[in-house]
């Protein structure tokens, strides 16, 4: 069985920006025993745990996509954010590779559309609907179903 980690991140006080955290919380509720982490942002310290997994799913909110978007992530060569700020999924994988000599066989970034990112803890109806879609999709991914049709781009 593949060792999996799901990491939902974002600012839950900026409305839809917390979509990644909300989706991860939902997955943790729906799938007891799943290895799910939530955080305001990605940290270099996550690299150790990610490196030990076969599949990593990052979930973030995005204002750049109108629908749920899945991209395959590979290690980046940028240190951007490795000083503790705004580390990207590719940056986490680069740290996995550099520090531990391995990366997950498969790493995905699931982006959930964000429409309203003002101050507040309530999400817009559009993002709430997209969280449902995202959770459904990630559940399929975790269940080992073929989701290749969903993957739009490769990101590094």
């Amino acid at each position: 069985m593949r060792k999996t980690i799901v990491i939902g991140y974002g600012n839950t006080l900026r409305r839809d920006d917390g979509a990644g955290v909300a989706a991860a919380d939902r997955l943790a509720r729906d799938r007891p025993g799943a290895n799910v982490l939530t955080s305001q942002e990605l940290h270099p310290e996550m690299a150790e745990e990610v490196a030990a997994c076969d599949l990593t799913v990052f979930i973030d909110a995005s204002v750049r996509t109108p629908t749920v978007r899945v991209t395959r992530v590979s290690p980046g060569d940028s240190m951007h954010g490795a000083d503790g700020h705004a580390l990207s999924p590719a940056g986490v994988l680069a740290l996995c590779s550099g520090l531990y000599g391995r990366t997950p066989e498969e790493a995905m970034l699931v982006e959930i559309p964000a429409f309203q990112c003002g101050f507040g803890e309530t999400m817009s109806p559009g993002t709430l609907r997209m969280i449902d879609c995202g959770v459904q999709l990630i559940s399929e991914l975790l269940a080992g179903k073929d989701t290749s049709r969903l993957i739009t781009t490769v990101k590094s």
């Binding site: 270099p44 060569d77 240190m79 490795a82 000083d83 680069a94 740290l95 550099g98 520090l99």
Partner: peptide, 10 residues
């Protein structure tokens, strides 16, 4: 940076 550090002394 941290990546240079990894190269120098993992």
């Amino acid at each position: 940076n941290i990546f240079g550090l990894i190269t120098k002394d993992k």
